[in-house]
């Protein structure tokens, strides 16, 4: 048995080799298969989530529709099929890398580390992390969290930032980590954590669909830098990136993007008609005026 099982690491290595070798020209592939495959998230409100009839909807889905039109025009294939595949946090990278999914329409943060594995479009949203607390706890500012337990979602890029904040402000925060954003909110609501540090838009989306949206309170102030969300696709493919970026730039230039933003962020959205009431911030306004995939303002 001993010698047999040494095969396994080899098999694992082989699988990895297989996956990274698959970065082919996306447009050629779309042309030969006649299909553009879009990946969507099931609960990333309001970017990409399941609407009333279990169909994916959201800002990123609308943007991807525009990209699909651009691809059709570029390839001169009006009959191009557009397939929708659900992806989750665990499988989206392998699916992009091995070519199952051509374009992820989600809410993925663009980082330098991640760019070693995949590529991102120009920024489609700018997010800032914030602290969410329960209104009933009476905590009104950062200092109020001193010595308390706070929650950060597992794998969230905000964890390192939160640790920095606690160090700089001598807050002595204690961190717990929840499996996903929904569970982070649950931690907050069941009193296991006094605060939740996360991208504000993700908090707003979840809090708005909770049974008691008024029970939550954002702490005032700005914490840390900006996170730029983008549509995600295979790296080292400048032709495809040009098409994706071109479609988004056109939306931004024509004012269509601003209308889409209003539709998803300042008006009632499916499935329950909640309203996130988040007007466009300065940082995103700057990016709409001058689209870019840079990581800093």
């Amino acid at each position: 048995m001993m010698f047999r099982q040494t095969f396994l690491p080899v098999a694992v290595l082989a699988a990895i080799g297989l996956s990274s070798a698959a970065a082919a020209a996306t447009l050629d592939k779309i042309k030969s298969t006649g299909t553009l495959t879009l990946g969507y998230r099931e609960s990333s409100v309001p970017f990409s989530y399941l609407g009333a009839d279990q169909k994916p909807v959201g800002l990123s889905i609308d943007l991807c529709a525009a990209v699909a039109e651009a691809v059709k025009a570029k390839l001169a294939m009006p009959g191009l099929k557009v397939a929708m595949t659900p992806v989750n946090a665990s499988n989206r990278i392998p699916l992009i890398q091995n070519g199952t999914v051509d374009l992820e329409c989600g809410s993925t943060t663009n980082t330098a580390d991640r760019q070693k594995q995949v590529a991102f479009s120009v920024a489609t949203f700018v997010s800032q992390p914030s602290w969410l607390t329960m209104a009933a706890s009476g905590i009104s500012d950062l200092a109020g969290l001193k010595g308390k337990t706070v929650v950060v979602t597992q794998g969230s890029l905000n964890y390192a930032l939160a640790q920095k904040i606690t160090k700089e402000n001598n807050l002595d925060l204690v961190f717990v980590q929840a499996k996903d954003q929904a569970e982070s909110l649950l931690m907050l609501r069941t009193g296991r954590a006094a605060g939740w540090f996360e991208d504000r838009i993700l908090q707003a989306g979840l809090a708005a669909s909770a049974p008691d949206p008024k029970a939550f309170k954002f702490l005032p102030g700005q914490f840390g830098g900006f996170d730029y969300y983008g549509l995600m696709f295979a790296k080292d493919d400048p032709d495809f990136k040009a098409v994706v970026d071109g479609a988004i730039r056109a939306q931004m230039a024509s004012g269509a993007f601003a209308k889409l933003y209003e539709k998803w962020f300042t008006q009632p959205i499916p499935p329950n008609g909640q309203n996130l009431s988040l007007p466009m911030g300065e940082a995103l306004r700057a990016r709409v005026a001058a689209p870019s995939d840079a990581l800093t303002p």
């Binding site: 698959a22 397939a83 595949t85 699916l95 091995n98 070519g99 199952t100």
Partner: peptide
């Protein structure tokens, strides 16, 4: 020739 998407 390429991976086939399989539903969850």
């Amino acid at each position: 020739p390429r991976p086939v998407p399989v539903g969850a």
